[in-house]
Structure formats: structure tokens, C-alpha cells
Lab assay of single mutants.
Amino acid sequence: QEELVKAFKALLKEEKFSSQGEIVAALQEQGFDNINQSKVSRMLTKFGAVRTRNAKMEMVYCLPAELGV
């Protein structure tokens, strides 16, 4: 569980995922086979993730800066 949270936060820091499906796929690539869209959705809510525009003006998920991840 701890490893999943770390990987999840690291992915969001990249600010390149525009959908929950993309986050699920990226986590599965890292070996988290039991991850699915509903789990990702709950984690996004739990950590207060928001959708914002990145440098390329794409809408992407990211974590609020005050979490200091």
C-alpha cells in the first residue's frame, strides 16, 4: 500500500496524466496489478488532487503543492 501511494504521488508530480485511465495504466506498468479506475479515483480524492493546466496547456492531474511530495 505504501509503495502504491509513493508511485501514485510520483506519477502525479510529472503532471502529464489527463485521465484516470492513464494513471491506472501507468501504475499497472509499474507492477501494481490490482489497481483500477475506482481505486485511482479514491486516491485522487484522498490526496486532494486537482486538474490543472501544465506547461503545454494540457489539462492534467496534479497534487496541491502544500502536500510537499
Rank of each mutant, 00 (worst) to 15 (best):
F47L: 13
E58V: 10
E15C: 15
E66N: 10
V24F: 05
R42M: 14
P64T: 05
L27I: 02
F32E: 00
Q28G: 05
V50A: 07
A65G: 12
P64F: 04
A26I: 06
G68N: 11
E66W: 09
K9T: 10
K56E: 10
F47C: 03
I35P: 01
Q28T: 09
F47K: 01
I35N: 01
C62N: 05
N36V: 05
N54M: 02
A55F: 05
N36W: 05
Q37A: 12
I23M: 07
A65Q: 12
A25Q: 13
L4S: 01
S41W: 09
S18L: 08
F32G: 00
A49Q: 02
L27T: 00
C62S: 14
P64I: 05
L44M: 06
K6Y: 10
V69E: 15
S19N: 09
V5I: 13
D33L: 14
E15T: 05
F47S: 05
Q28S: 08
N34L: 08
A10C: 07
F32V: 01
K39D: 15
Y61G: 01
V69S: 13
N36I: 04
Y61L: 04
P64D: 04
F17M: 11
I23C: 02
A49H: 02
Q28V: 11
S19E: 08
E3I: 10
N54I: 02
F32C: 02
A25Y: 09
T45D: 11
E29L: 12
C62Y: 07
V24K: 05
N34I: 05
T45V: 13
L27N: 00
K56S: 10
T52Y: 09
A10R: 10
G31C: 03
Y61R: 01
E29S: 12
F32Q: 01
T45K: 15
R42G: 10
F8K: 00
A7Q: 06
Q30E: 06
A49S: 04
K13Y: 11
G31H: 04
I23Y: 02
R51N: 03
G31Q: 03
Q28F: 09
V40S: 00
R53A: 10
K13D: 06
T45P: 02
Q20M: 14
P64G: 05
F47H: 07
R53H: 12
A25H: 10
A7R: 06
V50M: 09
K9P: 00
S18E: 06
A55V: 08
L4P: 01
E58W: 03
L27V: 01
P64Y: 04
K6H: 10
L11I: 08
L27Y: 00
M57V: 03
V5Y: 15
L67G: 13
M57E: 09
R53Q: 12
K6W: 10
R51G: 03
E22T: 06
Q37P: 10
L44E: 01
E29R: 13
Q20N: 08
A49E: 02
E15Y: 06
S41K: 15
P64W: 03
D33G: 13
N36L: 04
F32H: 04
E2S: 12
M57K: 09
P64C: 12
K39Q: 14
K6D: 08
A26S: 06
G48H: 08
D33F: 13
M43E: 01
A25F: 10
K46W: 14
E66H: 10
I23Q: 00
L11E: 00
V5D: 13
E22I: 03
E66V: 06
Q30F: 07
E3D: 12
T52K: 15
K16V: 08
N34A: 09
K46A: 14
V5W: 10
L63Y: 04
Y61N: 01
T52N: 08
E2L: 12
I23F: 08
A10N: 10
V69W: 03
E14S: 13
Y61I: 04
Q1L: 11
R53M: 15
K9W: 11
V50G: 07
I35L: 07
A10W: 08
A25N: 09
L11D: 00
M59K: 05
Y61S: 01
E3Q: 12
S19Q: 07
A55G: 09
E58N: 06
G31I: 01
K16G: 04
F8N: 00
K9N: 05
L12S: 00
L12P: 00
M43T: 00
V40D: 00
E29H: 10
T45I: 15
F32M: 02
G31R: 03
L67F: 06
L67Y: 05
D33T: 14
L63H: 02
S19H: 09
K39M: 14
S41T: 08
R51H: 07
K13A: 12
N54W: 02
S38R: 15
E15D: 04
A25S: 11
E3C: 15
K56T: 07
L63C: 11
S38W: 13
K56P: 02
A7C: 15
R42W: 14
K13G: 09
F32K: 01
V5P: 04
K56R: 10
A25R: 13
G21W: 13
M59W: 15
V50S: 07
K6A: 14
T52G: 10
E29D: 10
N54T: 05
Q20R: 14
Q28K: 14
T52P: 02
S18D: 03
N36R: 06
S38V: 12
M59I: 10
F32W: 09
F47R: 01
S38D: 14
V24A: 08
K13M: 14
G31A: 02
R42K: 12
M59Q: 06
D33N: 13
S19I: 05
V40G: 00
L63I: 08
S18G: 13
A65V: 11
L27H: 00
S41R: 14
Y61Q: 02
E14V: 06
L44Y: 01
Q1E: 15
C62I: 12
K9C: 12
Q30R: 10
K9D: 03
I35W: 02
K56A: 12
A10L: 12
L67V: 14
K13V: 09
E3G: 10
N54V: 03
E29A: 14
A65S: 14
K13Q: 11
E22C: 04
K39H: 13
F47W: 06
T52M: 15
A26N: 05
C62H: 07
Q1T: 12
M57W: 08
L27S: 00
E14Y: 06
E58G: 05
N36F: 04
F17H: 06
R53D: 03
V24P: 00
L67M: 11
V69F: 05
V5Q: 09
V50K: 11
E2V: 11
G68M: 07
L44P: 00
E15K: 08
E22Q: 15
A10P: 02
G21H: 12
K39G: 09
E58K: 09
G21M: 15
M59C: 03
A10M: 11
F17C: 15
L12Y: 01
Q30I: 10
V24G: 03
L67I: 14
V5C: 15
E14T: 13
R51V: 09
E22N: 05
Q37E: 14
A26M: 06
E15V: 06
V24N: 02
I35A: 06
L12F: 04
G21D: 12
S41H: 11
Q1K: 11
A55M: 06
L27G: 00
S19K: 08
G48S: 05
N54C: 03
G21Y: 12
E58Y: 04
I23P: 00
E58I: 09
A26H: 10
T52L: 11
M43P: 00
P64R: 06
